[in-house]
């Protein structure tokens, strides 16, 4: 049993590289964060920023022959990175579980959902097939599948996308894991269904006291369910902190850029949005200094071309808020207040 103050998952300097034909792909570089039971950490970033690879590294789902994982991921005090394949396998699906983006393709099309659920029980618990099926039925009930007695014998293709994601959640939580990693679980779903699924995850999180890592690119989802936020860019965490810190005191130019790019439902921005110029970096050829420098509007405020040559460190600026940027605190405040003022003033 971990106490509330002690994080259930604590990731420390996690790096992942893929040796490929085009060169070494540094997908994740020195990522650190932690999550307590009952709390939600949102990892937010654009596609290719390393969110899924981070999740798969924690779950031990990366093929060791095709990737190099370094650093630590402490799960209740034990380092997953240092475990053998078999040891991680025992943790997967029992103490930590994962749900994926596309519920359409994440269930095996040839097996009934009951069989797929019971299978998850049977690998980790010494129970009879009948008992496993009872657990599956109970879990389907909990995730709000109507008429579970019939649905348990359905094949995935007989269910809608939202229902399949519920089945995935049931499968992930059936062994009451303490950690749930959700990798963009609602990206493929409609907003109304997304709301149902997010609510369900929240309810079950309370019930099981689960630590949740929610991976998303949607700042709305972050605002809705997260306690803490880590913003990823080019394989690194560039800013992290409590949800209030990130939304109301953002400091890093990339985070500010993201906030300025999103169209808002509750207010009309200026006729033109203020997007971040350029494209996200390719992990094969990351810029030598700050990874965001080619798209940053403020790098010339930093003396001595540091942004082009020196990797900024993740700096703790208090209140649990950390920022990876060469700007000094005065400059950051200036930049932040400029951007936020422009946003607030843009309404029609």
């Amino acid at each position: 049993m971990t106490t509330a103050a002690q994080p259930f998952l604590s990731v420390d300097g996690l790096s992942v590289t893929f040796p490929t034909e085009d060169g070494r792909v540094q997908a994740v570089d020195g990522v650190s964060f932690s999550v307590e039971r009952g709390k939600t950490l949102a990892i937010v970033g654009e596609s290719g920023s390393g969110k899924s690879v981070t999740a798969q590294a924690i779950m031990g789902l990366l093929d060791r022959r095709l990737s190099v994982v370094t650093g630590h991921a402490w799960l209740a005090g034990r380092d997953i990175v240092a475990m053998s394949d078999d040891e991680v396998r025992h943790e997967r699906g029992s103490s930590m579980a994962m749900i994926f983006q596309d519920p359409m393709s994440s269930l095996h099309p040839f097996y009934r959902i009951g069989a797929q659920l019971s299978e998850a029980v049977l690998v980790h618990q010494k129970v009879s097939k009948h008992a496993a099926r009872e657990q599956a039925l109970d879990m389907l009930n909990r995730v709000g599948i109507p008429d579970p007695k019939t649905r348990i014998d359905n094949y995935p293709h007989q269910l809608s996308g939202g229902m399949r994601q519920r089945v995935m959640i049931a499968m992930a939580l059936i062994n009451s894991p303490s950690l749930l990693i959700a990798d963009e679980p609602t990206t493929a779903l409609d907003v109304t269904v997304q709301a149902q699924i997010l609510e369900l995850i929240g309810t079950l999180q309370q019930e099981y006291d689960t630590a949740v890592v929610m991976i998303t690119h949607d700042l709305g989802i972050v605002a809705d369910i997260a306690d803490n936020v880590a913003v990823m860019y080019g394989g690194r965490i560039v800013e992290s902190g409590s949800v209030d810190e990130i939304f109301y005191h953002p400091q890093m130019p990339y985070t500010l850029g993201l906030l300025a790019s999103v169209p808002r439902l509750d207010q009309v921005r200026a006729e033109r949005l203020d997007p971040i110029p350029g494209n996200p970096p390719s992990p094969i050829s990351l810029p030598p200094g700050c990874v965001f420098q080619p798209r940053c509007a403020y790098f010339d405020r930093v003396a001595g071309h540091a942004c082009q040559t020196v990797r900024p460190e993740l700096l703790d600026i208090g209140r649990g808020h950390r920022v990876r940027c060469h700007l000094d605190s005065g400059q950051r405040d200036q930049v932040a207040s400029d951007v936020l003022a422009a946003l607030a003033g843009g309404g029609v």
């Binding site: 943790e91 997967r92 099309p109 299978e119 998850a120």
Partner: peptide, 24 residues
């Protein structure tokens, strides 16, 4: 994707191969 799901459940690799991948 469903092979990744099977692995995420903690199934031994040989079950993943024989039961999930081969059948598919």
């Amino acid at each position: 994707d469903y092979i990744r799901t099977a692995r995420a459940k903690g199934l031994p690799e040989r079950v993943v191969i024989r039961k999930h991948a081969l059948r598919a």
